[in-house]
Amino acid sequence: GKEKASQLFSEGSAFDSATFAEHLPSQFVFPNTLPGQMGSRLLELSFMGLNRLEDEEDEQNRGSGGYLPRDAWHRLARRVQCCFKTAPSFHYMMGSFYAEPPPPKPRIE
């Protein structure tokens, strides 16, 4: 069925989430690829994706999730980072627990 909201969007291009999902795996690419190079390489880059199911080279890339490379989601995250203004978080070990002296150890002479 159609979502109520999409009825409001009669002008302009339609957006089909199924098509989106089909195109998306081409974006699971190496982080060094600059966004500007995307357009012309969409088809070449589809080796990452669902439309090369029969390719034996992808055998080792197949995780339990199917035919996407193991780090597909890391690659997509890197690719779409520019859309987010997320603050980096600060992680540390010092001060994360009570400082207690360890039990005395027998010294081996």
Partner: peptide, 18 residues
């Protein structure tokens, strides 16, 4: 990179485009 951001991106994009 946090892979969950990739997942989140997909969801947010679909919501926005729809």
């Amino acid at each position: 990179t946090n892979p969950k951001m990739g997942l989140l991106f997909v969801i947010l994009s679909v919501i926005f485009m729809k």
